[in-house]
Each structure stands twice: as C-alpha cells, then as structure tokens.
C-alpha cells in the first residue's frame, strides 16, 4: 500500500508516473501491512458484519445470477418448460456459428469508436481546457462536454437515428457545406452503418473521458509543468512528457469502462439499427437478447453471455496489469 501522503510523489525518472496512485482518497481502508494481526479477529468480525448487506445484495444479484447463467449454458432450455443437459453443445454453437462470431467482430470494431476516439479526443480537450484560464469559459466547456453523458443511451440512439436519416441534420449539414455528393442514409448503408453507430458511442463517451482526464490533470504537480516549460518544451512535448504519463491510471480506468461498453453494447444499436442492415451492426448484446427472449433458447443465450464475459475479461485484464506495472 502507499503511504498516506497528500502530495504527489516526485519522481525524476523520465516518463514515470508522477502522481502514482494519486488520490489517496478518503475511504481507503488503510489496513496496515504488518503487525496487529491479533486484532484482526474482532475487527474483521465487525467489518464482515458491516459488509453483510452489500455482500448479500452482491451475491444475490450478481454472483447468483451469474452462476445460474453458467448452469443454464449447459442445458437446452426454453426458459419455462423442461430442460435437457447438452454438455458443451451451446458453446460449440457459439464458437462455430458465423453469424454469432460476426457479431463479436462488430463489437471489437466498436472499441475504436467507444474507446480510442473518446479517450484520444478527451486527452486533447482536457489539456486544452487545462491551458484555458480558469473561469466561466472553462467550466462552461466542461459542462457542455459532459452533457451527452446524462442522455440515456437509448435516447441517444433514437435521436441520432433521426439525424442520420436521408433528410436528417447530418445530410443537411453536408449539403450546406457543399458535400451533397456524399450524403446517404448513413444507417442504411452497409459500409457506414457500423461507424455511424460507433460515433454515437463516441459522442456519448467523450464527455465522460474529458471530465475524468481533466480531474486527473488537476492532480499533476504544476511544478512539473513549470519545469518542462523552463526546459523550453512546447505544447506537444509537455503533453507527452508530463500530461500523458500522469494520466496513466485514469486512462486505464477509462479504457476498461469504455471497452466493456463497446463489447456489451446494446441500447444504442437496438434503438438505431437493431443490427441491420443485413447484419452489419449486429452485436453480441442484440444476439443474446434475441436468442434468449425471442427464440426462447435460454441455454444458447447464456452460453453466448459467458463467452462474451470471457472475451471482456481477456481484453480488460491486460489493461489492468499494464496500468499496475509501475505502481
């Protein structure tokens, strides 16, 4: 565990995380590493007691359903009637059915739009806002950028579907600036549907990324900026030497959150394209919903859910590891 310092740890190493584990924030349960083992019994007792309500909810609504899902995934079951044990047949189906595999591929493509674009844009915006003078303009910018985050994803999907329509705002804008030649119904075109859906995600998530990164920047010791300025560094140099390394933790958190959002996306796709045209925007979330609730094949849907969970873990765990290397 880290010491309970309030100031950032100064590190001279090039590119080293500066405010490592910044935010030794309030409710960190600072269990001392050694000694006091004896008192653990009683304190632990009280701690468990206090954890109990939360633990019960967690087990009841997260662990238990997950185990049920795992169990269902080995059965052929319509959700109501009798079930038959089918071993790993559902998993074989998930891993061999080209339609289901295609939907996984689409979800992976969405990572570009849900993760890379929002974090990239967020980094730019955050460092730009940081260089703005503190004042109404900066906080207005923050608020405006954060606004999309409070729009429910389902509503964002519907609103953007209208904007992407043949006569929607996107095409009106393109016509106005003389790009009438490329207008189309963006969600109906096989090549543009997935990027168009992805950009809705970018729009929603950029605000979150910007605000979180801005908070992170605020915790970077300003003397580092001064130092790098004295050395004659420009904006880019400053960005890569101070800002980016200082934000490693935040970026890891955001990458985790947004990758999960991409891989398990459902609402945006459901309200904008429902997976079409053809299967151009079909994602696992939609497939699982349809298999489980329309086709009433709960076993296959559960198996696909399990596979999706494993994929999410496979992608997200290395990010966790990477962010910890220099702790």
């Amino acid at each position: 565990m880290k010491e309970a310092t309030t100031g950032p740890v100064r590190d001279t190493g090039q590119g080293e995380p500066v405010a490592t584990g910044s935010a030794p924030t309030g409710p960190v349960v600072a269990i001392p590493k050694q000694g006091k083992r004896k008192s653990v019994g009683r304190a632990g007792y009280a701690a468990w007691l206090m954890l109990l309500p939360a633990l019960a909810v967690y087990i009841g609504f997260v662990i238990f359903p997950m185990l049920m899902g795992l169990q269902y995934s080995f059965y052929d079951w319509n959700g109501v009637g009798a079930s038959t044990f089918v071993g790993i047949a559902n998993y074989t189906e998930v891993l061999t059915n080209p339609v289901l595999l295609g939907s996984i591929l689409n979800a992976i493509t969405l990572i570009i739009f849900f993760t890379l674009i929002p974090i990239g844009t967020g980094l730019m915006l955050a460092s730009l806002i940081r260089s703005m003078r503190q004042g109404p303009a900066a906080s207005a910018a923050q608020t405006i950028l954060f606004l999309p985050q409070i729009v429910p994803l389902a509503a964002a999907g519907i609103a953007w579907a209208w904007m992407y329509a043949q006569t929607g705002t996107v095409n009106q804008f393109l016509n106005a600036i003389g790009l009438g030649g490329i207008t189309r119904s963006w969600l109906a075109d096989y090549n543009t549907a997935l990027p168009a859906v992805g950009l809705i995600g970018s729009w929603v998530l950029t605000g979150l990324c910007t605000v979180l990164l801005l908070t992170g920047i605020g915790k970077i010791d300003s003397s580092l900026y001064e130092a790098v300025r004295l050395d004659g560094a420009g904006w880019w140099r400053e960005f890569f030497t101070v800002t980016l390394p200082g934000l490693k933790q935040e970026i890891a958190v955001l990458a985790t959150l947004t990758i999960i959002a991409a891989l398990s996306s459902f609402d945006i796709v459901y309200t904008s394209t429902q997976g079409g045209p053809g299967r151009a925007t079909l994602v696992p979330g939609i497939s699982i919903f349809r298999i489980g609730f329309t086709q009433s094949d709960v076993g296959l849907a559960s198996a696909f859910g399990m596979v999706l969970m494993v994929i999410v873990l496979l992608v997200v765990l290395p990010i966790q590891r990477l962010s910890k290397v220099n702790d």
């Binding site: 049920m68 169990q71 079951w77 009637g81 079930s83 038959t84 044990f85």
Partner: peptide, 9 residues
C-alpha cells in the same frame, strides 16, 4: 450450483 437439479419445470 451445477450439482443442483436442472433448470425449469
């Protein structure tokens, strides 16, 4: 959980 009975009626 898996040792329990099969889901459904």
């Amino acid at each position: 959980a898996l040792a329990g009975c099969a889901p459904g009626g």
